Computed example of a mutant assay.
Amino acid sequence: MRIFHVATAADWAAAQASGTYTTSTYGVSLTQEGFIHASREDQWRGVLERFYADVTEPLVLLEIDTDLLASEVVEEPPAPGVEETFPHVYGPIETAAVVAGTPLR
């Protein structure tokens, strides 16, 4: 399965240097959040509009092949009372599992 994650270009470059991506969402680490927020293909544009509209630094859309991840991916709502689910990655994302990194904006 393919899932998507909006990343800053700087965070993605750091991940490529280290071999793992560990940013949960803009300005929040995997350690702080406990998982990495991701989206399905039909969701990432809404995430970009809602949560990254004011971000001025360069962004990259990471396309992740879940079959290549060592970490568990769980579909769950982002908050209590929300019915829509999103994929959450419970651990680091190995850069080898990222099959595309497309610049945004």
Rank of each mutant, 00 (worst) to 15 (best):
G101I: 04
L48R: 11
E63R: 11
I64M: 10
E75F: 01
T95A: 05
R2L: 08
E84T: 11
F51W: 14
V99I: 12
G34N: 07
D67Y: 09
Q16K: 10
T22E: 14
T102A: 13
L48C: 14
T22M: 06
H88F: 10
M1W: 03
L59F: 05
A13G: 07
Q43S: 12
A96F: 06
P77E: 10
L69I: 06
A9Y: 02
E84W: 06
T23C: 03
Y90E: 13
S29L: 08
G91L: 03
E84H: 09
P103S: 10
G46D: 15
W44D: 04
Q16H: 09
T23E: 10
T31E: 15
F51Q: 12
Y21N: 04
A97H: 00
L48F: 14
V99T: 13
W44K: 04
F35P: 07
G91H: 01
L30T: 04
R105N: 13
V82W: 01
A10V: 04
V98T: 04
T102G: 08
R50K: 13
Q43P: 03
D67C: 01
A14C: 05
E41R: 09
E72W: 00
R2K: 05
G27F: 03
V73G: 07
V82E: 15
P92F: 02
V89S: 03
A17D: 13
R105S: 14
R2A: 05
G27K: 04
L68P: 13
L104H: 01
T20R: 05
A17K: 06
I64C: 10
H37C: 15
E57T: 13
L61V: 14
R45K: 12
I3M: 02
G19I: 04
G46N: 12
A10N: 10
E94I: 07
A70Q: 15
E94R: 04
P78S: 13
L30D: 01
A53K: 14
F4G: 10
P77R: 01
F51D: 15
P103V: 02
E57M: 12
A38C: 11
T85W: 07
T23F: 02
E94K: 01
P78N: 11
T102R: 08
V73H: 08
T85G: 08
T20S: 12
G101Y: 04
W44L: 10
T8G: 04
V89T: 00
T102F: 04
G91E: 02
G81C: 09
A96C: 08
E49Q: 13
Q16R: 13
E84F: 00
A96I: 02
S29W: 06
T25V: 09
E33I: 00
S18Y: 06
A13Q: 10
A9F: 02
V28R: 08
E57G: 13
D11Y: 00
I64H: 05
F51V: 08
V6G: 06
V82C: 11
E83Q: 13
S24I: 01
V89H: 07
D11E: 06
H37M: 09
A10K: 01
P87R: 00
Y26T: 02
P103T: 01
G46E: 14
A14T: 08
P77T: 09
P103H: 07
E57S: 14
T66W: 03
V6W: 09
R105E: 14
I64K: 00
L62H: 00
E75L: 02
A13L: 00
A14F: 00
V98W: 08
L104I: 09
